[in-house]
Structure formats: structure tokens, C-alpha cells
């Protein structure tokens, strides 16, 4: 149904009002504010994680990140629950793609995996981390599936479900570990903080990559349905 371009005045006025109110609110702020940066920077120094943002994400506010992983996994599962025909895409992509795409995929995927690993590794000191790595890994997964190296239906098979869940499950296990040692949830012991964070990051990368791949493949799977109508 083609939409005729039109402006509705009331929604427009409402949006403009929101704009004006936000500007007014921001304008009322003082020019400088420290927020929590001082505490956070000091805390990060103490904890040994050089990148403060990573320290905030995985340590100080690790609980947010735990639930955020849950959000991503939940969305993936929600999208999986909406598939009509899980095998539609698999039927369309039946064999390995032609020589060029095959060769390129063979060349790129290992590089992407290395890049993903690198992004995770440098996350502790600079920009990077599980999400960035996971995104690259997810792209690799999609590439593998579309070029026929991996069957798209695998995206919802039992092994894939394990991969999807392993990051969150590991994160939970690591979060619960301190409880046995007398701490609270996510209170990493100081001596093993770095290695635990790294372990979580690596497995999270895997799960995030799997999630993104699954999100793509699950919603791509029944394209033919809509086109048929």
C-alpha cells in the first residue's frame, strides 16, 4: 500500500514539544559535571582492568551486562519462536557456493575469527570486547551459512542452542562462583578477576556471534512465504 506523504499536525507538535523540552532540560545543566567518573576511574585502577568502560561494563555494572546478554538471547529465542518454516532457507541454499565465493569465504572466515579474538583481547585496555568480537563472529557465521558451508537449519539445532546459551551460562556460573567464596554475586576474587573476565568475554563472544547469526538466519528463513502472496 503506497503511503501518501502527509504531515499530521498533532503528532508533529507533540514531537516538537518533546524536542523543545529536551533542549530546555539540557540547557539548564551546568557546564561541567563529574558524574561517577572519578569513582569509576579509581575503582578501575584498583581492579586492574585498564579500560574503564570495560571495567564498568563487566565489573561495576556487570549485572547490567548479564541481563543485557539475557536480552540478546531472549530476542534470539523470540525470533526463533516466530519462524514458520525452519527449513525454508536450507532448501534454497543446498550446496557450497561457486568457486569465487567459496574461495573468498575460505580466506575470510579464518581472518574474521582472528579479528574477533583480537577485539576481545584488546577489550581490557582499549575499545573492543565481547560485543565487537561477537559482531564479527556473527558476520562470519552468516557468511558461512549463505555460502553453503554451514546449513542454515543448524541455526536452531541442539548444538547451536548450546552455543547460544553457553555464554550466558558461563557468565552465570562465574557470577555465582564468589557466593561459594563468601562474596556476593559477581564479586570476582581479586587474584583471578582478569582471567575470569577474559573467560566470560571469550564465551560471550561465541554466544553473541551465534545469536547474531541465528537472528539473521531465523528471520531470513521464511522470506519465501511473504513473496508467495
Amino acid at each position: 500500500m503506497p503511503e501518501r506523504p502527509r504531515i499530521r499536525l498533532v503528532p508533529l507538535a507533540a514531537s516538537l514539544a518533546v524536542f523543545a523540552l529536551v533542549l530546555r532540560a539540557v540547557h539548564a545543566l551546568p557546564d561541567t559535571a563529574t558524574g561517577l567518573s572519578a569513582e569509576m576511574t579509581a575503582g578501575a585502577k584498583a581492579s586492574g582492568i585498564k579500560n574503564v568502560v570495560t571495567a564498568v561494563l563487566l565489573d561495576f555494572r556487570g549485572y547490567d551486562t548479564l541481563l543485557e546478554i539475557a536480552v540478546l538471547m531472549l530476542a534470539t529465542i523470540a525470533v526463533l519462536s516466530l519462524r514458520t518454516d525452519p527449513d525454508a532457507l536450507s532448501r534454497r541454499i543446498s550446496g557450497v557456493a561457486g568457486p569465487v565465493l567459496g574461495a573468498l569465504t575460505r580466506a575470510y572466515v579464518p581472518i574474521m575469527i582472528v579479528v574477533a579474538g583480537h577485539l576481545v583481547w584488546i577489550g581490557s585496555s582499549g575499545p573492543g570486547g565481547a560485543f565487537q568480537g561477537g559482531a564479527v563472529l556473527g558476520a562470519a557465521g552468516i557468511l558461512l551459512a549463505l555460502s553453503g558451508f554451514a546449513r542454515p537449519r543448524w541455526s536452531s539445532g541442539a548444538p547451536m542452542r548450546w552455543v547460544l546459551a553457553v555464554g550466558l551460562l558461563t557468565f552465570i556460573a562465574v557470577a555465582l562462583l564468589p557466593l561459594a567464596l563468601g562474596g556476593t554475586l559477581l564479586q570476582y576474587p581479586d587474584e583471578s578477576r582478569k582471567s575470569l573476565v577474559l573467560l566470560v568475554e571469550i564465551l560471550l563472544t561465541l554466544s553473541i556471534g551465534a545469536s547474531l547469526t541465528s537472528l539473521f538466519l531465523a528471520s531470513a528463513s521464511d522470506t519465501s512465504e511473504g513473496e508467495r502472496r
Binding site: 539475557a70 538471547m73 542452542r161 547460544l164 555465582l176 556476593t184
Partner: peptide
């Protein structure tokens, strides 16, 4: 580890673990 001290955390974690296990375990 005394469960009573960690009840708030466990109230969130328990159903979360349940969700993951239910997903992995299958229909």
C-alpha cells in the same frame, strides 16, 4: 555459602538458569 544471604540474587538467577536450561533441553 549461606543461601539466605543471597536470596535477592538467587531470585533473579534461578529463573534465568531455568530459562537457559529449558532452552537447551528442548521441547
Amino acid at each position: 555459602m549461606n543461601v539466605v544471604h543471597h536470596l535477592p540474587a538467587l531470585l533473579v538467577i534461578t529463573p534465568l538458569v531455568g530459562a537457559c536450561v529449558a532452552f537447551v533441553a528442548g521441547r
